[in-house]
Simulated assay, not measured.
Amino acid sequence: MPQRKLMPGQTCQVWTVGPACTEPVKRFETSRILLESPNWLSSGDSLVINGEGRLWRLPLTEASQLDEIAVTGVPDLNNDHVLDPDGEHIRLSAYDRQLYRAPVRGGAAELITRDPSPDGVLHFLDGVHPRGDRLAFTGLRETPERGRTPGDVYTMSAKGGDYRRLTSGPGASDGCEYSPDGKWLYFHTELCDGHAQIARIRPDGSGLEQLTFDDRGNWFPHLPR
């Protein structure tokens, strides 16, 4: 699948801002590569970002430069990646719609979704349980009749297998992230009123609760750690 790229004349900027909405700081700008989905490394002094199917480390210094994180044994990456709670690994999604685990400093990736998935579901990684033993992802399927179906929230063992489907339409659900105590999954969904609202659900699929009630399109909740 072709990678998303900057259009002629476009630039890409990376900014950070404090949790109290302090003054934003521009950390990096490039006209060469489209960067997406920055995550803080556990050290707090660098970001890990994807671009052109690869991972990059961006040190937060006055002279920030992109350093490639060389990950082997994995196809081109998409923008779904999550740091493992151990601080040493990163969970990855690739354009083959499978999930991988790799050292965050670079090295050989391990395929996690080696077991057949239910109904041929395509994996788009969103979250890792605080214990590191389960993954949350958005699952889609492709059918001859309907094409690609709307997404639903799934969890699975971090070692592969043990799939659990937590939502089942109508409407798409996406962007699922565990709460810091692991007792909830927060996500955005069209299940409640037909457009994207923030909701949460228990990891066993019970207790679905709508959290926003406005006319905005509310996407991808992220909880402070």
Rank of each mutant, 00 (worst) to 15 (best):
M1G: 10
P2T: 01
Q3N: 13
L6K: 06
M7V: 03
G9Q: 02
Q10R: 08
C12R: 12
Q13D: 14
G18W: 05
P19F: 15
P19H: 13
P19E: 14
V25M: 10
R27I: 14
E29D: 07
L35E: 06
G44W: 04
D45Y: 06
V48W: 04
I49P: 01
R57K: 15
L58V: 10
T61L: 04
E62C: 04
Q65C: 07
L66W: 11
E68Q: 15
E68N: 11
I69K: 01
T72G: 08
T72P: 00
G73V: 10
V74D: 05
D76Q: 15
L77M: 13
D80F: 14
H81W: 08
V82L: 13
V82S: 11
V82T: 15
L83Q: 08
D84E: 10
E88Q: 15
E88S: 09
H89P: 01
H89Y: 04
A94T: 02
Y95S: 09
R97P: 00
Y100E: 02
R101W: 00
R101Y: 00
A102K: 01
R105S: 11
G107D: 03
A109N: 05
E110T: 15
L111A: 09
R114E: 13
D115A: 14
P116S: 10
S117I: 07
P118N: 05
D119G: 14
D119Y: 15
H123R: 02
L125Y: 08
D126P: 04
D126M: 09
D126Q: 14
G127I: 00
V128T: 07
P130A: 01
R131E: 14
L135S: 00
L140C: 14
P144R: 08
G147F: 14
G147W: 15
T149N: 05
G151Y: 01
G151M: 02
Y154G: 08
T155H: 02
T155C: 04
M156R: 03
M156F: 09
S157F: 11
K159S: 11
R164H: 11
R165I: 01
R165G: 00
G169N: 06
P170S: 12
A172Y: 02
A172I: 03
G175N: 07
C176K: 01
Y178P: 04
Y178F: 15
Y178L: 12
S179Y: 02
D181G: 08
K183G: 05
L185S: 02
F187L: 13
T189E: 03
L191C: 08
C192M: 09
D193L: 06
G194C: 04
Q197G: 07
R200W: 05
I201T: 05
I201Y: 03
I201P: 00
L208N: 02
D215L: 14
N218M: 10
N218L: 07
W219Q: 14
H222V: 15
L223R: 05
R225N: 09
R225C: 13
